[in-house]
Design a protein around this nucleic acid. Structure first.
Lengths: 338, 338
DNA sequence: CTGTTAGCGCGTTCAT
DNA sequence: ATGAACGCGCTAACAG
């Protein structure tokens, strides 16, 4: 490892001068700078960011905090796409990202503030934490620059990125209504997620705006899991034969509904239309292919990082960014009866 | 941020004593220790790892180096699963992981060694780099503890994790032969990946051991992309109607072959059997569902991290770990002709 | 323009 | 059993 001291020794200048030459200060002789730069290049000098951050308080590092990354999470390429988006922008900006996975056991030992100060993190992006998660609460109250994915809360040091879920869900519901569907069911996820609430509200508003009545009995809960959605919809479809369309808060649950429909010999879309949410890769390969609301998680990650760095540098004019979703129509939607 | 100095001021002891009490040295009075520990707990003290690493040279941080994480990589849940595995073990061991994504532009400015020393990384896990990647070469030659995923190279400071690709590919080929297939084609990926070579070799050996001749003309190249595999196999199947089975070096390419078969009105598996590699989620949802060789990327990540930490601590007895794959038979394989 | 001094937060001699 | 002094690699205040 080559240090400033090494460069100082070799070039004959003091550590201070070397530091200033390298950091582009203009109070250093041009020739001196050239000599130092040449030496740095030759020896492949890179500043030790840890040492730098100790004095400047700027670690050039942000954290990406996600809920417990277990084996099962691997299916969730939403998180991964967000991650890729973060990675791309963070690199461009000369920062690096550290992956933080919460686990309940860990939370007992370390507070959010500790995790941040341990490594001088300049900011944090949070995704997938449940509403009541203590880390989330701490992040919102604290003064560490934070960007939330899909959790619409903002304050002095907190911003968020999300998609126009409200509009896009309403659009999907109204689309179904326009096709002629009158009994449109909703498969919701668990109540720990902010998005469940938003999507549910939007579903109800969509119905209203389409002139349809809201019937609380047409709501199922699938916990964002295929298996649970499958079982829930199996029962549900049996006892509610009047339902001709299902809007699901996630594609994974839509797969469960699709499976249940097949089990019940219901033809999709002839007997039952299905719309999911996320546009996961699978939706293009099921049979029938699945209509869905497409999110752009990569963009969420990228723009979220952008926002975070703005908050860190105090150069942000706004505290939230909305990415546009798109309604993607495939084979799983049609007029009732075909 | 609460520091050792703060604790010293509050408890009335010196910084040195506080440091030793917290680090479990036994040359400190029990009462003193209790007082200090209580204060630390109360103030939620956490050591600043950056400062620690400056003096101990142990940053408690490893890097996960992957090839350019672009928007398209998001489909690749192999990488994500490896990531999840790393995350799980790294956390258990009190380490943290930093995500490093290479890009050719970045490589011009920074050498591998620089990336490591910049943040005092204790070790690196490398996945998905091409054979000729300069970072990979540097990693192997250098003295930074390194674990390679699916690249069988080992030396004093380099180890690897991989799966028993050799055996599992041969097993798949011999299975097809036992079903009665005589003309088994191979869809290879690009030549930049080590695994392409290994799988190709194993394919040939599998044929030989099954008493079948190796015909170089039965090899296609799909670059690990669905679209390319689709186009390559479309041509190929037209001009090689005797082929009744296709072994593919990845599921993604198997999807391309499946698409081509449908395009050509070939029934899978009656007219054409297909086996893929990876066991991606999609393989369970295609129609027909896809037989494949299942890897355990989560395990690769987890065990790889385990190995890396052993190399770092110099406690490793071996330098490589092999995870067992499994041949998963679904609907895309049958006897020729049905 | 350049060097000296100081200190970020921490662990580690070496005294006492 | 405890503390003073030093240094990790770096930037910043001040002097000259």
């Amino acid at each position: 490892m080559v240090t400033l001291k090494d460069l100082a020794r070799i070039t004959g200048y003091s550590v201070t001068t070397v530091s200033r030459a390298l950091n582009g200060y203009d109070d250093v002789n041009k020739e001196t700078r050239d000599i130092i730069l040449a030496a740095a290049e030759k020896l492949e000098y890179t500043p030790n960011i840890n040492a730098q951050s100790l004095v400047t308080k700027r670690s050039k590092t942000i954290g990406f905090l996600v809920s417990d990354l277990k084996r099962e999470s691997a299916k969730d390429n939403f998180t991964f796409e967000v991650l890729c988006g973060i990675s791309e922008f963070v690199t461009e900006a000369g920062y690096e990202m550290i992956l933080l996975s919460t686990s309940s056991s860990k939370q007992k030992n370390k507070t959010f503030r500790q995790i941040v100060s341990e490594r001088n993190l300049e900011g944090i992006i949070i995704q997938g934490l449940k509403k009541e998660d203590p880390y989330l609460q701490e992040a919102i109250k604290g003064s560490v620059p934070t960007v939330l994915v899909d959790i619409p809360i903002e304050n002095e040091t907190t911003g968020y990125v999300t998609s126009n879920q409200h509009d896009s869900v309403k659009k999907a519901i109204k689309y179904l209504a326009r096709l002629g569907h009158r009994n449109i069911a909703y498969m919701n996820g668990h109540k720990h997620a902010y998005v469940s609430e938003i999507r549910y509200q939007s579903y109800k508003e969509g119905l209203s705006e389409a002139g349809l009545e809201v019937d609380e009995n047409l709501v199922c809960y699938g916990d964002y899991e295929e298996e649970k959605a499958y079982r829930a919809s199996l029962d549900f479809l049996l006892s509610n034969p009047e339902v001709t369309a299902f809007f699901c808060a996630s594609d994974i649950m839509a797969l469960g509904v699709l499976k249940a429909a097949k089990e019940l010999k219901l033809d999709v879309p002839k007997d039952l239309s299905i719309i999911g949410f996320d546009n996961i890769l699978l939706t293009q390969y099921t049979s029938p292919t699945l209509s869905t609301i497409g999110q752009k998680p990569f963009e969420l990650g990228k723009r979220g990082t952008e926002l975070l760095l703005e908050i860190i540098q105090n150069s942000s004019t706004q505290r939230h960014i909305i990415i546009q979703n798109e309604l993607i129509l495939r084979e799983s939607t049609a007029q009732p009866g075909g």
